[in-house]
Design a protein around this nucleic acid. Structure first.
Length: 415
RNA sequence: GGACGGAUGGCUGAGUGGUUUAAGGCGGCGGUCUUGAAAACCGUUGUGCGUUAUGCGUACCGGGGGUUCGAAUCCCUCUCCGUCCGCCA
């Protein structure tokens, strides 16, 4: 969430940056509501002040207050109630407007309209001369490790079942990644996969993107689309000790309705309703968050390196940034069979956007400060599976398991 | 799911309608004393909002609502925690 006073005091600068991501901000409306709000607060604070002192006099005096006096005081309370109802209404209108304003991009972020303006900043290996193999939706069912029909039977389109060595490979990837991150100082967290509404608001997924989320109406809980949502709220409402960075890693199921994406990339497991992901999350001092971002990008790239995958880094332009992000770099792996780059990680710094929403703060020499939050997948499992299957396919139809995973899988080859 | 008991500042713990805009204790911070430390003593102590801003005002005793001139205190409701019972991986 953007700070109201910052928005109003430096609106020109901020509006420009928000415009570069295709957002129009109803600033006049916000300013008007804010000034109404301030007037109402002043009015009610004055009335309360008077009421408090009068009531103290009544309390101190031994005599009963006169009927006239009581009536006068009752009028004041009635007036206060009316002001308060009005104030609550104004504040909720203001809040509604502020909650749907996206984060302000860092100055360094490329200006652009959409994904076509993104910039590839690093490519691990040239893919042009590689020979085409088969797509994973042919390889995996043939090997008996993926069953799309059973997924449909159980839950419908875009749900799937991993079996045998496919399921084991997934579990191995998760274990390998978690151990790597543990060694890098990330504290492993196993969070709830369903969370309260305020937690979804805290991460930025609500109120704007409810159509992307699954929800349990009975209990009023939401299924997380990524464990970023849960990790971001670990310190909800807290003033945390001045001990940074706080580094968390968590493995979770991720649930996405993918309503907006209906019809796109429907084959196989490129885009599904439930998938597993290992997520990195950090709380950082504002002055350190930029370096931390680069560090996380390197950590993700190293994983791809060790898996022997071809990958590239893509810097997102302002028009393609996620709602809560101030800067994002995507890591995409090459899928040899479907001849496609697949996004397996999105590393973002969200500056103080999320910590404001969750009221996560720390104290530095008496000053209350919002830490920066950063997140990045490391990594999203199904697309890594796709890449391994399509790139490591052998002529005999078997698939080689990456070396680093073999001690987890217990086998070197899927056949 | 049922019964009962709870929720007060960083922690502990008083407070059943008006000097409680929250006692006492612990912890934290600052000071006195000391070669230094401990002890003792003195002072201090949270968050949000507004403002004419070294200050002043206001709100906050789990959340929301109600009664009242006035609510931490009384009433309703929800949430969470504890104990016991039931159920369960």
């Amino acid at each position: 969430m953007i700070d109201l006073n910052t928005l109003i005091s430096s609106s020109e600068n901020i509006l420009g940056k928000l415009q570069s991501r295709g957002e129009e901000i109803p600033l006049d409306n916000i300013k008007e509501l804010d000034s109404k709000r301030k007037n109402l607060i002043q009015e009610s604070d004055q009335l309360r002040s008077f009421r408090n002192s009068e009531n103290k006099r009544i309390g101190d005096s031994k005599e009963k207050p006169s009927l006239e006096h009581i009536n006068k005081m009752r009028d004041i309370s009635d007036k206060l109630n009316k002001i308060n109802v009005n104030l609550i209404d104004i504040e909720s209108q203001l809040n509604e407007l502020l909650l749907v304003i996206p984060n302000v991009p860092l100055d360094e972020v490329l200006i652009g309209n959409d994904e076509t303006d993104n910039k590839v900043i690093f490519t691990k290996e040239d893919v042009k001369n590689k020979k085409t193999t088969k797509p994973h939706w042919e390889i995996a069912p043939n090997l008996g490790i993926l069953d799309m029909e059973q997924g449909v039977k159980l839950a419908g389109s875009r749900w799937y079942v991993l079996k045998g060595k496919g399921a084991i490979l997934q579990r191995s990837l998760v274990s390998w990644m978690l151990e790597k991150h543990n060694k890098n100082g990330y504290l492993e967290i196993a969070p709830p996969f369903l969370v309260k509404e305020e937690v979804m608001v805290g991460s930025g997924n609500l109120p704007k993107f409810s159509d992307l989320l699954y929800r349990d109406i009975e209990e009023d809980l939401w299924l997380i689309p990524t464990s970023e949502v849960a990790l971001n709220s670990l310190h909800f409402g807290e003033i945390i000790p001045h001990e940074f960075p706080l580094k968390y890693v968590s493995h979770s199921q991720c649930f996405r309705r993918e309503k907006a994406a209906a019809g796109r990339e429907t084959r196989g497991i490129k885009r599904v309703h439930q998938f597993e992901k290992v997520e990195l999350f950090r709380f950082e001092l504002p002055e350190n968050s930029r370096d931390a971002f680069d560090e996380m990008v390197k950590e993700v790239q190293l994983l791809c390196d060790e898996l022997g995958l071809i990958y590239r880094s893509v810097e997102l332009c302002t028009g393609d940034l996620g709602f809560q992000s101030a800067k994002t770099i995507d890591i995409e792996v090459w899928a040899q069979g479907s001849q496609d780059w697949l996004e397996v990680s999105s590393i973002s710094t969200c500056t103080d956007f999320q910590s404001r929403r969750t009221k996560t703060r720390y104290k530095d020499e008496g000053e209350i400060i919002y830490p920066h939050t950063l997140n990045g997948s490391a990594l999203a499992i199904p697309r890594i599976l796709i890449s391994i299957l399509e790139n490591n396919l052998q002529d005999d139809g078997s698939v080689l398991v990456p070396k680093v995973l073999q001690k987890y899988t217990g086998f070197e080859r899927i056949d």
